[in-house]
Nucleic acid binder design. Structure first.
Lengths: 153, 153
DNA sequence: TATTGTTATACTCTATAACTATA
DNA sequence: TATAGTTATAGAGTATAACAATA
């Protein structure tokens, strides 16, 4: 339970509602992302995430990207259109199955992926003003359990 | 359809990025909210939160609601328009200062606030499939630290 | 007939600028 | 001049239905 502060409102039943606290915490992390990655590199959150997945896994079909990022097909198409127009990714057709593609990082895309991965380090460090390193790790572990995934590799 | 490989993709640099894990966990809590409160009562997340704040604190000026819920003024106006049109809240002018208002729950609004507060209990219980009670409490505590809102009056 | 990806579209969410009315 | 709230509007974000090409 959060400490009482007479200048702030009582959360009432909201105090035990996980979704509310996640939404509030997201305000902090989104702001931090914007300052460290979003504005400097002109990337949205989902674009950054997509570049990180390609950097870590190599070329991937849109289907797997959509599943991992919880995007619908049409929205991923538009996202890839933008990234391709910026010269960060390319669509490659699969010669074995004409329906499917592989999304590959261009050289420019790889550079920006590596640069933003580096920028994410001080981004996380900024959160350590509020959380100890152990708390940061514990929070990620609990969020993974809530999301229904195993602790990340 | 056979279950797809659950081990899925490597998150790479994303594995230590708090914002990513918060976004993923939000998928879970949002789905749970929709099933327990959103669809049954026809309320959006922010509408539910607003009703909870009014239930716990009594009449409040829009300014304080906007600050607590991280809403801009114009968006709160539209939100209050909808709730007022449904007969859940009323705007009361402050006789001492004609500029300011108080938002008050109607009797119908109080009933739905109490009913949704009750529905939030099984909603949180559903999360206990994934988190122990202690983990649930710990997660909320850590999220509060991360949100770190020194309430700006 | 099923699957991959696209087009078209619409609705929600959030943000900014300019306005009204009180003080 | 400053504050509380509103109007108008625009941009992201996300969802569904219908479609094309391939298997």
């Amino acid at each position: 339970m959060p400490p009482k502060d007479p200048s702030s409102l009582s959360l009432g039943p909201l105090s035990g509602v996980m979704g509310y606290h996640i939404a509030q915490a997201a305000v902090t992390t989104f702001g931090t992302f914007e300052r460290h990655v979003g504005k400097p590199f002109g990337l949205r959150k989902v674009e950054f995430s997509l570049l990180m997945l390609l950097l870590a896994n190599g070329p991937l079909p849109p289907k797997r990207l959509a599943l991992t990022l919880t995007l619908t097909g049409p929205n991923l198409t538009l996202l890839l259109d933008r990234l391709q127009e910026r010269g960060l990714v390319n669509r490659e057709r699969n010669p074995a199955d004409g329906r499917s593609q592989n999304i590959v990082l261009t050289e420019k895309g790889r550079r920006i992926a590596q640069d933003t991965a580096a920028a994410a380090v001080p981004m996380e460090s900024e959160l350590l003003d509020r959380l100890s390193r152990a708390e940061h790790a514990m929070l990620i572990e609990l969020l993974c359990k809530l999301a229904g995934r195993r602790t990340p590799l």
